[in-house]
Design a protein around this nucleic acid. Structure first.
Length: 698
DNA sequence: TTGTCCGAGG
C-alpha cells in the first residue's frame, strides 16, 4: 500500500510525470479501497485527470472519482461525472446522495435515493444518515418512516450513527414517541444519542423529560458536554429560571466550556430572557471568539430589555468589528429605532436592509412597519405592509397598532377583520392593538364587544394590557365610573392601570374620584411619581393650591422628583430637545420672536388662551406666558424656522399634549400651511389645515 | 456517517 501511495503522491505533486500504465492501474485500485487518501480538492481533480487519461469508461473508476469529489462537497464536478454513467453503481449513488445532502439540496438527495432503490442497488449505513437528514429537513414524515422501514429490513437499525440520525429526524418531525422507541431499541448509544434525544425533548416542550435525561446520563457513564448544555439552557431561559441557569453557568466554567460559541450564546440569551442584561453583556464581553449569533444575542437582549442605546452602540461596534450583520441582526435592532423614534437611523438601516436583499424577510418588514408607524410615517408603514408577501399575525398586528396609534380606528378594525378572514388567529397582542384602536377613537361599543368576546372567540383570557386598554377607553370617554367598576373586577389591579383613570379624573375634573383612585395607587405603589404629580395637578386645577402643595411636599420628603416635560425634533440629523422655560437653546431668542409673531396671527384667527391648563398659582397674564413657553410649541417654532416651506414638522413629546397647545397647533398648521405631526406619550396627532386627526379625542 | 445558539408586534 505504502509504495502505491508513494506513486500517487509523486503523481499528484507532478501530474506531468510519466507513470507506467501498471503504476496508474495499481494506484487507482488502491484508491478504490481508500478514497480518503486524497486530501484536497486539487488532488481530487488530478485523480480525475488520471482516470480520464487511462480508463475513462470504467464505471468503477468514475464512481471513485465521484466519491472523492463528493468528499470535498464538489457537487458540480460529481454531477458531471454521475451523468456520464448509464447505470450508476452503488458507490456512485451513495456519493451523489451524500453530496446533494451536504450541499443542502435535500429534494435531489431524496430523489437520488429513490432512483437508487429503483435501480436495485442496496443502500447501506453510509447513506442512511444523509437520507434521514433530508427527510428531517423537508419535514417529510411519510418518506422518513418508509426509510426507517427499509433500515429495519436491512437490519441497519442497530447501527449507531443511523440510529442517531433516526432520533434526530423524529425529533425534528416532533414525533416524540418514535424518538423514544428508537433510543430504547438501540443496542449501543453514545453521547450524541443522548444529546439528540435531550435536544429534541427540549425543543418539543418536553422540558421535564429533557432534564431527567440529563440526570440519567451519568448512570450511562456520560457527562454533559457543550451540546447538552446548549440544549437545556433555553429551557431555563423560557422559564425565566435564572437560579438554575446560573447553576449551569457554574458547571460551564468548571469544565472550561465557556470558550464555546454555542454555550456562550445560550448563556447570553438565558440571562437576557431573565432580565439580567448586565450578566449577559458580561458573558458576551469575555467571549473571545464572537460570531454574528453571539452579537445578535447580546443586541437582542439589550433591545428587549429596553436598553435601546446600548443595543445600538453594540450594533455599531459589531459593524466596526467587521462582523457582517444577518437578517436577524436587523430584526433585532429595528425595534430600538421604533422605541426611540429615531427615524433617520431607521431609514439608514432600511437602506442597508435593501442593499443586503433582506427586505422580503417578513420579520424585518414587520419591524419596519412598526418603526415607520411609531416614527409618524404611517403611510410608509402602510406601503411596506402592502408589499409583504406571506404576512403573518405579527405583520398584521404591527399595522393594526400603527393605525391605532394614529387614530385610524376604522382602518384598524377593517385590517383586523381582514386578517381573520385570511384565517389568521389573533393573539393577545393583536387583541391589545384592536382595543387600543377603539380606545383612541372613543369607540366604546366596539371595544366592549372585542373585550367581551376575546375569551370565547379566540381563547384568550384578558390580561393586564387588555384591562388597561379598556380602562383607557372608558376613561377617555369620561365614563369614569365604568372604568372604576372594570378595574375593580381585576384580581390585582396595578398602579399603572389606576393611573389611567386618575389622568381621566384630571381631564374630566372629578376631584372626589381622583382622591379615591390616588389612595388605591399609593396602596400598591407608594413611589408612583406620575400619580402624585397628577393628584397635585388635579388639586391645582380645582384651585385647591394648599392640597396641591401638600402633595408636592410629600414628594419632596420622599425624595422623589418628577421628570420635566420635554419635546424634541430632528432637524438635519440632529435632535433638538426643548424643556419648558429652558433658555439654553442657541436660537432661544429667535424662537421667542417667532412664537410672538405666531401668537399675533393666532389671535387674529380667534385664538384665546385656555389658561385653565396652567397649574401654577399665578395671574392670567403670567399663565399666558407660561403656556406659550410649552416645549412642543417651541420645538414647532424651531422646526418652522429651520426647514424649507412645506416640510412636515415632526415633534415628539414625553407627556400628553395639553388642550391649549392642541388648539394652538391646529391654528399654527393652518397659518404656516404645514402638516405638523406630534407624538405624545400615548398617540399621534396629525395637524393639517386647522384640523387634527384625533378629532379632539385623546 | 449523526447532534447545538440568536430574531418581529403591546
Amino acid at each position: 500500500m505504502a509504495s502505491t501511495l508513494g506513486v500517487l503522491e509523486a503523481l499528484l505533486r507532478n501530474p506531468g510525470a510519466i507513470a507506467t500504465k501498471l503504476e496508474v492501474k495499481q494506484l487507482l485500485k488502491a484508491l478504490l479501497k481508500r478514497p480518503g487518501a486524497i486530501t484536497s480538492a486539487s488532488e481530487a481533480k488530478q485523480l480525475h485527470a488520471q482516470i480520464l487519461k487511462h480508463n475513462p469508461s470504467s464505471p468503477l473508476y468514475t464512481s471513485t472519482a465521484i466519491c472523492v469529489y463528493s468528499n470535498f462537497k464538489l457537487l458540480n464536478q460529481s454531477l458531471l461525472l454521475f451523468k456520464t454513467l448509464q447505470s450508476p453503481p452503488s458507490l456512485a449513488y451513495k456519493s451523489i446522495i451524500k453530496c446533494y445532502a451536504v450541499n443542502g439540496r435535500f429534494v435531489e438527495s431524496l430523489a437520488s435515493f429513490v432512483d437508487m432503490r429503483a435501480s436495485g442497488n442496496t443502500p447501506d449505513h453510509s447513506v442512511f444518515p444523509s437520507v434521514l437528514k433530508a427527510c428531517a429537513f423537508l419535514l417529510d414524515l411519510r418518506l422518513g418512516e418508509a426509510v426507517h422501514g427499509c433500515i429495519i429490513r436491512l437490519g441497519m437499525d442497530v447501527h449507531l450513527i443511523t440510529g442517531n440520525a433516526l432520533i434526530n429526524m423524529y425529533a425534528k418531525l416532533q414525533t416524540d414517541s418514535s424518538v423514544k422507541k428508537v433510543f430504547e431499541t438501540m443496542t449501543t448509544r453514545d453521547i450524541i444519542s443522548w444529546n439528540t434525544v435531550i435536544a429534541g425533548n427540549a425543543q418539543n416542550g418536553l422540558h421535564e423529560d429533557a432534564l431527567a435525561m440529563v440526570r440519567e446520563m451519568g448512570g450511562a457513564g456520560l457527562k454533559p458536554d457543550i451540546f447538552t448544555l446548549s440544549a437545556i439552557l433555553p429551557i431555563f431561559a423560557q422559564y425565566v429560571d435564572v437560579d438554575k441557569g446560573r447553576e449551569i453557568h457554574g458547571y460551564v466554567i468548571r469544565y472550561g466550556f465557556d470558550k464555546d460559541l454555542y454555550v456562550a450564546s445560550s448563556l447570553i440569551n438565558m440571562y437576557s430572557r431573565c432580565a439580567r442584561v448586565e450578566d449577559s453583556i458580561r458573558v458576551f464581553k469575555i467571549t473571545r471568539q464572537r460570531d454574528t449569533i453571539s452579537w445578535n444575542s447580546v443586541i437582542a437582549g439589550c433591545v428587549q430589555n429596553g436598553m435601546f442605546d446600548e443595543g445600538l452602540r453594540l450594533f455599531r461596534q459589531m459593524l466596526k468589528d467587521n462582523v457582517i450583520p444577518g437578517s436577524v441582526s436587523f430584526s433585532s435592532i429595528m425595534p430600538a429605532c421604533a422605541h426611540l423614534t429615531t427615524l433617520n437611523l431607521g431609514k439608514q438601516l432600511h437602506g442597508y436592509i435593501m442593499r443586503c436583499g433582506f427586505d422580503d424577510n417578513v420579520f424585518i418588514s414587520s419591524s419596519l412597519v412598526d418603526m415607520y408607524a411609531k416614527c409618524g410615517h404611517i403611510r410608509t408603514a402602510g406601503w411596506i405592509f402592502g408589499g409583504i408577501k406571506g404576512r403573518d399575525m405579527v405583520s398584521w398586528t404591527a399595522m393594526i397598532m400603527g393605525c391605532a396609534l394614529h387614530g385610524y380606528a376604522e382602518d384598524a378594525i377593517s385590517l383586523f377583520e381582514q386578517m381573520k378572514l385570511e384565517g389568521i388567529r389573533p393573539n393577545h397582542v393583536a387583541i391589545t392593538a384592536i382595543l387600543t384602536a377603539c380606545s383612541h377613537a372613543g369607540m366604546i361599543d366596539e371595544g366592549r364587544r372585542y373585550f367581551d368576546r376575546m375569551t370565547e372567540e379566540y381563547g384568550i383570557r384578558p390580561g393586564l394590557e387588555h384591562y388597561a386598554a379598556m380602562a383607557d377607553l372608558y376613561s377617555r370617554k369620561g365614563k369614569l365610573n365604568d372604568a372604576y367598576q372594570l378595574i375593580s373586577t381585576m384580581t390585582t389591579p396595578t398602579g399603572t392601570i389606576w393611573s389611567l383613570l386618575l389622568s381621566a379624573c384630571r381631564v374630566h375634573k372629578n376631584v372626589d374620584l381622583a382622591e379615591k383612585v390616588a389612595s388605591k395607587i399609593f396602596e400598591v405603589d407608594p413611589e408612583n411619581i406620575g400619580a402624585r404629580v397628577l393628584l397635585s395637578n388635579i388639586y391645582a386645577n380645582d384651585g385647591r393650591w394648599k392640597e396641591a402643595a401638600k402633595v408636592r411636599m410629600t414628594m419632596r420628603n420622599m425624595g422623589i422628583r418628577k421628570n420635566p416635560a420635554c419635546s424634541w425634533i430632528e432637524v438635519k440629523n440632529k435632535i433638538h430637545t426643548f424643556i419648558a422655560d429652558d433658555k439654553s437653546h442657541p436660537l432661544h431668542d429667535e424662537i421667542n420672536i417667532a412664537l410672538c409673531e405666531l401668537q399675533e396671527k393666532m389671535e387674529l384667527a380667534g385664538y384665546v388662551a385656555d389658561t385653565s391648563e396652567v397649574l401654577h398659582d399665578v395671574d392670567d397674564e403670567q399663565k399666558k406666558y407660561l403656556l406659550y413657553g410649552h416645549s412642543e410649541r417651541r420645538a414647532i417654532a424651531f422646526g418652522i424656522m429651520s426647514t424649507p416651506a412645506g416640510t412636515t414638522i415632526r415633534v415628539i413629546k414625553n407627556i400628553r399634549i395639553c388642550v391649549d397647545c392642541h388648539t394652538a397647533i391646529k391654528l399654527i398648521s393652518k397659518i404656516v400651511g404645514r402638516e405638523i405631526v406630534v407624538r405624545d406619550n400615548s398617540r399621534f396627532h396629525h395637524f393639517r389645515d386647522g384640523e387634527c386627526s384625533c378629532g379632539e379625542y385623546w
